[in-house]
């Protein structure tokens, strides 16, 4: 049963990772807490829902989710974060919270307050290994996450643009001094992070068969806890933190009949990290 719970936890952790990566990447280059990322995630889910209703294809839904999320992320970068970058960090933080709340209400007004079903028929089988069952939706989440993370790693580690991205995240001014187009790198960074959040949105919508205006809330705040846990700005740290939170909260629910809601564990971990290892698990 513990192995089964591990599968459950890894599935949830994968979704957290996709969501939190955008947060950590934006923090890496801009030192901004991108709260409105949760709205990008929700928009991705609605984009995917719309495309699925129009075409009935999972791939169209995934593409539309990522595309709509990228557009939203770039718009925020262009019109919210970049103009405010010279202001104190609190200004971008507050603007970000404002954008998030505003967009949630826009989703409610446009799509209605009720949740929509996103019932995508999956051609995947249930996989049974000994006593462990990986259901088709779990397989989908884990496979898509692994593919996207693999692609991200290849991009960052093996391409010149990826190098520029790493350099900018280490020292923005130095990167600019070396002739890198920092603005372009920041834009790229937002596009990548938003695409992942959009994918996370549509996957969460499919996995729980529900797309609603407020679906970004808890996931968004938990993403903040996860990037603190992993080390702000560290991509491997964020993935590790996300999987850890997913597995630990799942196993704790199954082992102890404890009255603390699952969402509390990530935040307790965040507080512990602040107290004992402020740089996070894999932070420098």
């Amino acid at each position: 049963m513990l192995l089964q719970q591990l599968v459950n936890g890894l599935t949830v952790g994968s979704l957290y990772a996709l969501m939190a990566l955008g947060l950590t990447m934006v923090y890496g280059v801009l030192r901004v807490l991108h709260i409105a990322h949760a709205a990008v995630f929700t928009l991705g889910a609605y984009g995917g829902l719309w495309a699925f209703q129009a075409t009935g294809s999972f791939w169209a839904a995934l593409a539309a989710a990522m595309a709509s999320a990228v557009l939203a992320g770039l718009a925020m970068e262009r019109w919210v974060y970049w103009p405010l970058l010279a202001k104190p960090p609190i200004a971008t933080l507050i603007a970000s919270i404002g954008v998030f709340i505003g967009l949630e209400e826009v989703f409610r007004i446009v799509a209605g307050p009720q949740p929509y079903s996103l019932d995508v028929p999956l051609l995947l089988p249930d996989v049974r290994v000994g006593p462990v069952l990986v259901t088709a939706p779990q397989l989908l989440v884990i496979a898509v996450t692994a593919a996207l993370l693999g692609a991200l790693w290849l991009f960052i580690a093996r391409t010149p643009l990826g190098l520029a991205l790493r350099a900018t995240s280490q020292d923005r001014d130095m990167a600019a001094a070396c002739g890198m187009n920092v603005r372009r790198v920041v834009t790229l960074n937002f596009a990548l992070g938003s695409a992942l959040a959009g994918a996370a949105g549509v996957l969460v919508g499919i996995y729980y068969n529900s797309v609603s205006p407020t679906m970004g809330g808890v996931t968004g705040y938990k993403g903040l806890a996860i990037i603190v846990l992993g080390g702000m700005g560290s991509i491997p740290g964020t993935v590790l933190g996300a999987l850890l939170v997913g597995v630990v909260e799942t196993i704790l629910i199954s082992l102890v009949d404890f009255a603390l809601p699952r969402d509390a564990w990530a935040f307790l971990a965040m507080i512990a990290v602040f107290l004992f290892r402020p740089q996070g698990l894999l932070g420098r």
């Binding site: 719970q5 459950n8 599935t11 729980y208 808890v218 799942t250 009255a259 699952r262």
Partner: peptide, 20 residues
Amino acid sequence: EQQYPLGEKEFGPYLTKLKD
């Protein structure tokens, strides 16, 4: 007898216990 919080989304942990 199990309890879960309002707004819970992931019922895998609870139902896995009942599975067999």
